[in-house]
Nucleic acid binder design. Structure first.
Length: 293
DNA sequence: TTTAATTGTAGTC
DNA sequence: GACTACAATTAAA
């Protein structure tokens, strides 16, 4: 229970970046939710308690786009464009990776190892997972790592750290969890700093899930930066065209969000559908990538 | 816009 | 094992 108390303490201003996202999140929420009666920047600023100019600046610094441009970047039209051009690159690319091995997957150089639940249960029963909370451009990030590589990445709103932790530990109940910020910290820098994406040393991740989920995730890893695919595209890619619904479920179960670019999967009509850690965050990621590209 | 068809998971019995 | 509810869907009426 002591640990609990520690988590529930709302960390108000962990870092500048952390609180920035909180502000940005609210802005995105407002302009996307009430797109019908498009609140002006002034209205939003007033609501949040900041001056319009200040807000404008903050937002642009964060996303690389003005709020207006950002809004446009997450519209259906834009998503459609990401989908449409260049035919079907996803389907062309063949798997050059077996179950495990290095690969140039999207723009992050990632090596992934697959582990089935059975394997996990047998071998991973006593496995230790180190975790830690770190600030990220999308709020507080919960990072989990085994000695073989990154195994989980989740997000938490401020004060909700406990929820995220529960959500992740529930997936692999047999593991031992130890808080160890020092061990997880390096991953954060690597993942959220785009300048470090191209690097000679691959990022090592460990995928834990069923066979089907693994195929889905590997498929997602092939989506290039700034592109998007539909759930049925993925379903096609793994050879089960009618399983789009199941693909959705598998995508949602992805334990390493962001690294596995689940935010690049959209519905067929271009709309952004659900997201485990909040639709707003999905929009934020997509917009963020658009801005930096 | 509502509806029916669909598939892999996880939980229950 | 079988059965059921559920999920980031989709195509069709």
């Amino acid at each position: 229970m002591n640990a609990l108390a520690q988590f529930s303490t709302p960390a108000i201003d962990v870092t500048p970046e952390g609180s920035d996202y909180e502000t940005v999140r609210r802005v995105i929420e407002m302009i996307t939710l009430d797109y019908r009666d498009q609140p002006s920047l002034e209205t939003i600023a007033a609501e949040i308690g900041q001056s319009p100019t200040q807000l404008q600046k903050l937002f642009t610094r964060w996303a690389g786009l003005s709020p207006k441009a950002f809004l446009q970047a997450v519209t259906i039209d834009h998503a459609k464009r990401l989908l449409g051009t260049e035919g079907l690159p996803l389907l062309e690319t063949s798997y050059e990776v077996g179950l495990s091995g290095p690969g140039r997957l999207h723009d992050l150089f990632v090596t992934h190892e697959a582990m089935s639940p059975g394997e996990w249960k047998a071998k991973g029963g006593g496995l230790m997972i180190r975790y830690g909370f770190h600030p990220s451009p999308f709020g507080l990030a919960l990072v989990m790592a085994t000695d073989r590589g990154l195994s989980g990445l989740a997000f938490a709103d401020e004060g909700r750290e406990r929820e995220a932790l529960d959500d992740m530990t529930r997936r692999w109940p047999n593991a031992t969890y130890v808080e160890d910020k020092a061990a997880t910290e390096p991953y954060v820098g690597r993942v959220f700093d785009r300048s470090k994406w191209l690097c000679d040393r691959p990022l090592r991740v460990v995928l834990i899930g069923t066979d089907f989920q693994m195929r889905v995730w590997q498929s997602l890893l092939k989506i290039p930066y700034g592109k998007a695919v539909t759930y049925s595209d993925v379903a096609n890619d793994i050879g089960q065209p009618s399983a789009s619904r199941a693909v959705g479920a598998a995508v949602g179960a992805n334990p390493i969000s962001f690294v596995v670019p689940c935010h690049r999967a959209v519905a067929k009509n271009g709309a952004l559908t659900g997201y485990h850690w909040g639709l707003t965050r999905k929009r934020a990621m997509l917009g963020w990538e658009t801005g930096g590209a």
